[in-house]
Design a protein around this nucleic acid. Sequence first.
DNA 1: CCCTGATTCGC
DNA 2: GCGAATCAGG
Length: 216
Amino acid sequence: MSWTEERIDQLKRLWGQGMTASQIADELGGVSRNAVIGKAHRLGLEARPSPVKGGEAASGGSPAPASPAPAPERVAAPAPRPAPAPAPAAQPPAPAPAAAPPTPQPIVRSIGPGGFQRQAPGEQSAPITPAPPRRLVPAKPSADIADKTSLLDLNDRVCKWPLGHPGEPDFHFCGEPINPGFPYCLSHCSVAYQAQLPRRDRRPPPPLPFGGPRVR
DNA sequence: CCCTGATTCGC
DNA sequence: GCGAATCAGG
């Protein structure tokens, strides 16, 4: 596997979201945890609370005997990374063209800390695909969305779940009353927030989200 | 043992 | 640039 732009992009996002190297490696597939770490460092992504820090370590691939890498003291641990939040994965609610209706089983949901519904394990959608950072455009007033929630209508009480994509004429936001404490309404919370499953149990084959990563 | 990220270094 | 090997720490 090679580091395509898409994969690098995904690496950056996942790493930024606080996923561990092996988790990222699993997601990406075809690469090892080491590969991920190596790439992350090469990219300049840096310093996440590492277990090994104080002590100096790692002699290279060759069993070089004594040459304890100096590096006396690495100062400053900047990057006060904002705790790996639950990742408000703004999954593009894309107009699901190829709606894949899986097994219609009775769904049992539990209620999360914020009062939102957790997804049942069975309805875990594979890739948490945060909407690729799209450039915001000046919400264009359109007769079509005159009665919909536009960018300018957003406030801290309405669901900010985007519907459609910025730039598109009918782009707007959900606008329903929010689930207190969250930026989305109850139903969108249950889409945006997922309980993290044990890595082993996670669905591996991530079907590309509607059309896949944005093509520039 | 498992896991983590960091580092080195041959390729 | 890549990533296996190796490290040290939880």
